[in-house]
C-alpha cells in the first residue's frame, strides 16, 4: 500500500483544440506538446477524434506545465481554446473557464456566445492560409497566433517540432507551415496578454 500525495493547485495551461478532420488539429496539438517538451516543460496531448480522416470532428487537448502534470486526459475545464471550425465547437462555451483565451478562426466560425465571458481573439486563418497558397496550413496560422498571445515557447521551437513531426510524404509542407506560424503570430501582434 502506498499513500498519495496531496493535490497541488493547478498552474497548468489547459488548451482545447476544436476542429474537423483535415484541418491539421492533431498535428498542431503534437507540435505544441512536442515543442513544450523540447523546452523542458511537462506536456500532455490527449486526442479525441472520430473515425473519418476528413470532415469529422477532430478534437484534442494539450496541457503544459512546469511541474509534473495533474490535469486529467479528459479536461473538465480549460484555460484556453482554439476553435478552428464551428461544426463541433459545442463543448467550448461550457468548458472554457471565465476569462479564458478563445482563439477563433473567424473565416469559418461565427462570433457566438461566450464573448462576454472570454478573452476572444479572432484570426481569419482559412483566408490567410489560402492567401499564402497553403490551404492545409490554417491550423498553423492559429497555432502561431496562439503562441504569440501566450508566449509559451520561442516560435523557432514550433518550427523545429513541426518539421520533425511531418511524415516523409508531407515533408514538402514544412516551409509553408513555418510561414503560416509566422503569419499567425504577426496577425495578433500587439494583442498579447499583459504580463
Amino acid at each position: 500500500m502506498t499513500s498519495a500525495r496531496p493535490a497541488a493547485p493547478p498552474a497548468e495551461l489547459q488548451l482545447l483544440l476544436i476542429g474537423i478532420g483535415g484541418q491539421g488539429i492533431q498535428l498542431i496539438g503534437k507540435t505544441l506538446a512536442q515543442a513544450a517538451t523540447n523546452t523542458g516543460k511537462h506536456a500532455m496531448l490527449a486526442a479525441d477524434y472520430g473515425g473519418e480522416m476528413r470532415g469529422g470532428p477532430s478534437n484534442a487537448s494539450v496541457v503544459i506545465g512546469t511541474e509534473p502534470l495533474r490535469s486529467l486526459p479528459i479536461l473538465p475545464s480549460a484555460t484556453a481554446a482554439i476553435v478552428a471550425s464551428h461544426k463541433f465547437a459545442g463543448p467550448v462555451p461550457q468548458r472554457l473557464r471565465e476569462g479564458g483565451l478563445l482563439l477563433r478562426n473567424s473565416s469559418v466560425v461565427d462570433s457566438g456566445a461566450g464573448r462576454e465571458h472570454h478573452r476572444v481573439v479572432e484570426v481569419p486563418a482559412t483566408a490567410m492560409a489560402t492567401e499564402l497558397g497553403a490551404p492545409q496550413a490554417s491550423g498553423f496560422i492559429l497555432l502561431g497566433a496562439f503562441n504569440r498571445l501566450t508566449g509559451l515557447v520561442p516560435e523557432a521551437e514550433l518550427v523545429t517540432a513541426m518539421t520533425a513531426l511531418l511524415p516523409p510524404y508531407r515533408a514538402q509542407h514544412a516551409t509553408k507551415n513555418a510561414e503560416a506560424l509566422s503569419a499567425g503570430a504577426a496577425a495578433v501582434a500587439g494583442q498579447e496578454a499583459p504580463r
Binding site: K30, T37, K41, H42, A43, L45, A46, A47, I74
Partner: peptide, 9 residues
C-alpha cells in the same frame, strides 16, 4: 484508450 493514445512526457 486513455493509456494507449494519450501522449505525455
Amino acid at each position: 484508450p486513455l493509456l494507449a493514445q494519450t501522449r505525455v512526457g
